[in-house]
Simulated assay, not measured.
Amino acid sequence: MKASGVRADFRYYDLVMAAFVAILLLSNVLGAGKVATVPLPVIGDWPFGAGILFFPLSYVIGDVLTEVYGYARARRVIWAGTAAVLFMALMSWIVVALPPAPDWGNQAAYEAVFGQVPRIVFASVCAFWAGEFVNAYVMARMKIWTGGRHLWSRTIGSTVVGQGVDSLIFYPLAFLGAPGWTPGLVGVVLFTQWALKVGWEVLLTPVTYAVVGGLKRAEDVDVFDEGTDFTPFRTRV
């Protein structure tokens, strides 16, 4: 069913939203600040941000949301994710700042893991917000341009642009000039992150097709954003 109106009887929308927010929070807590290396033939050890292993799944889910449920519902999920990241940052700051018990000796380790630098939090929120909205916008527009055909072109094309915006905002804002982060390292990790995210999207294309097809059949919907207000500054569907 091709649809553009408002429906409130979706069976799986809330579950997709929950998966999106969970992956977003976990990837920010566990992977955002660590630089790992992978050995490449001829080149040798190549640095990459550890969050790349799981964070791109949020973009895949974002593609699924826009493709199946439309831009307006994807926009609502992006705002939910943004609020969750901000609350996580606030909670981390409060918990880390609480005075430790005298016989608890793990404060330093706790601060190292959860004591997020405000600069990194700010960069993460800005990059996520901008990148996700660009991704959703490109995805929705391309669906109209292609008449709903060639899903692969929309998922990959939106990721190229959206992840590019995300990486261009996050790494310079978060790490340029920080101890241990030379401009060259920032540039290498930025490009590597973008390339790996796009590569993940390509590799996961069969999964995206299966999930999108299954959800469209289960929900009996296929939203085309014709006449949609694409402003990011609202949450109402």
Rank of each mutant, 00 (worst) to 15 (best):
R73P: 03
F54N: 06
G33F: 00
G162S: 08
Y13Q: 11
G157T: 02
V189T: 06
I169P: 00
L86C: 12
V85S: 07
T192A: 14
Y13P: 04
M1Q: 10
V186K: 05
G70V: 02
V211Y: 09
V85M: 11
F133D: 06
A74F: 05
A18L: 11
F55Y: 15
S158M: 13
T228K: 01
G62S: 15
V117P: 01
V125R: 02
V223F: 04
F191L: 15
L86Y: 01
K197G: 14
E201Y: 04
R75P: 00
V77C: 03
K34V: 13
H150T: 05
P179S: 14
R217S: 14
L24F: 02
I156T: 13
I23K: 05
G199Y: 05
F114V: 02
V77I: 09
D222H: 12
L30T: 05
A140F: 09
K34C: 00
A84G: 00
M17K: 05
R11M: 12
T37A: 08
V35E: 07
G70K: 08
Y69C: 13
T159Q: 10
Y209S: 00
T146F: 10
Q107Y: 02
G49Y: 01
F87H: 00
P118G: 07
T205Y: 13
L173W: 13
Y13I: 10
D229G: 02
F48S: 03
A74R: 02
R119K: 15
G180L: 12
K197N: 10
C126K: 05
T155R: 08
A178D: 10
V6A: 12
E111C: 00
F10L: 15
E67I: 04
A8K: 11
V125H: 03
A178S: 12
G49I: 07
G49N: 13
A130N: 05
T37P: 00
W104Q: 04
V42C: 04
V189P: 01
G51K: 03
F170I: 03
Y137W: 14
H150Y: 15
T82V: 10
F114L: 15
L26P: 00
P172M: 11
L53R: 04
I52N: 15
A195Q: 11
F230S: 02
G5N: 12
L24T: 12
G227P: 01
R141G: 08
L203D: 04
V60I: 15
I78M: 03
K143H: 12
A97P: 06
G180N: 12
G131R: 09
A36R: 04
Y12P: 00
Y71S: 10
L15I: 09
M17N: 08
M1I: 07
G44V: 05
E219T: 10
G187D: 03
Y110M: 06
F128W: 05
L24Q: 04
G5P: 06
L86Q: 04
Y71C: 04
V21D: 01
I61V: 15
L203G: 07
I43Y: 14
F128H: 10
M17A: 13
G187L: 13
F20W: 02
V202C: 14
F122P: 09
F122H: 08
L40Q: 04
S167P: 04
A19S: 14
R154A: 13
G214K: 06
V6W: 11
Q163W: 07
V134I: 11
W104V: 10
G49K: 08
